[in-house]
């Protein structure tokens, strides 16, 4: 099991989702993907994509305009 980090701070749509998808394609079952970003729309768009993929959104946190999304693969 690995903890994969994706840092997309400063990037705007659709880059955060592109990078998240890239990480998810490489991840194995049991891994965790953690995405850190700043673009507000991506914070909503990534959970929307996870729902379609049937993946578990483990946690969302936001502090001073930086959000963090944890995904269970």
């Amino acid at each position: 099991m690995a903890d994969i980090k994706v840092d997309v701070r400063g990037e705007t749509c659709p880059v955060p989702l592109v990078e998240t998808r890239k990480a998810l394609r490489k991840a194995s079952p049991g891994d965790t993907v953690e995405v850190v970003g700043t673009h507000p729309a991506s914070k909503k768009e990534i959970p929307m994509a996870l729902k379609a993929l049937g993946l578990k959104l483990e946690d969302i946190q936001e502090e001073e305009d930086v959000w963090k999304i944890r995904i269970g693969v």
Binding site: C13, P14, L17, V18, R21, E45, M48, A49, A52
Partner: peptide
């Protein structure tokens, strides 16, 4: 909406 976002979400589906 951005076409790139549409293509990504369609791809996921």
């Amino acid at each position: 909406v951005e076409g790139e976002s549409i293509t990504l979400h369609l791809d996921i589906r």
